[in-house]
Design a protein around this nucleic acid. Structure first.
Length: 130
DNA sequence: GCCAACGTTGGC
DNA sequence: GCCAACGTTGGC
């Protein structure tokens, strides 16, 4: 899941302990939100200024009506922070990995909620360890 | 700051 | 229903 740190950062999520991931206004991203189940894990990626994965969060509440709009097309999920990565994962590192060439983060850089297979998750996770 | 990529809008 | 125009996102 991507966020611009100037709008909402991982540090803010850690400080707050939980957040509602709302404001998604893209159908593909919305569909990916709906696929998430309570207990699923998600990387949090800082776009624009940092371009790196900074932490891992868990879905604490799966999709529900986005509270920021009365339009029932849009949904949100709740997240809680699980782990701050001491070794952050740069976009450039992900780009260098031949097994990660097909993930939507690279293919569709504008998509804000991006699906990963378990295998892709494990590969990316391993990049975040010394 | 620029621009490519992509989604959305609206005229036809 | 097509497609040009426009707006937004995000990497560089």
């Amino acid at each position: 899941m991507k966020t611009e740190p100037s709008a909402f950062s991982w540090e803010q999520l850690v400080k707050d302990g939980t957040t509602t991931w709302d404001g998604v206004r893209n159908y593909q991203a919305r569909n990916n939100l709906k696929l998430m189940k309570t207990g699923d894990l998600a990387f949090i990626y800082h776009s624009v200024s940092d371009k790196e994965i900074v932490g891992i969060a868990k879905i604490s509440k799966e999709y529900f009506q986005d509270p920021t709009t009365p339009d029932c097309n849009w949904v949100a999920v709740d997240l809680i922070p699980i782990e701050s990565l001491t070794k952050k994962i740069k976009l450039s590192e992900i780009k260098l990995n031949p097994e990660l060439q097909n993930i939507a983060l690279l293919k569709q850089s504008r998509l804000s909620v991006i699906p990963l297979t378990k295998k892709e998750y494990e590969i990316i996770r391993s990049l975040g360890k010394y």
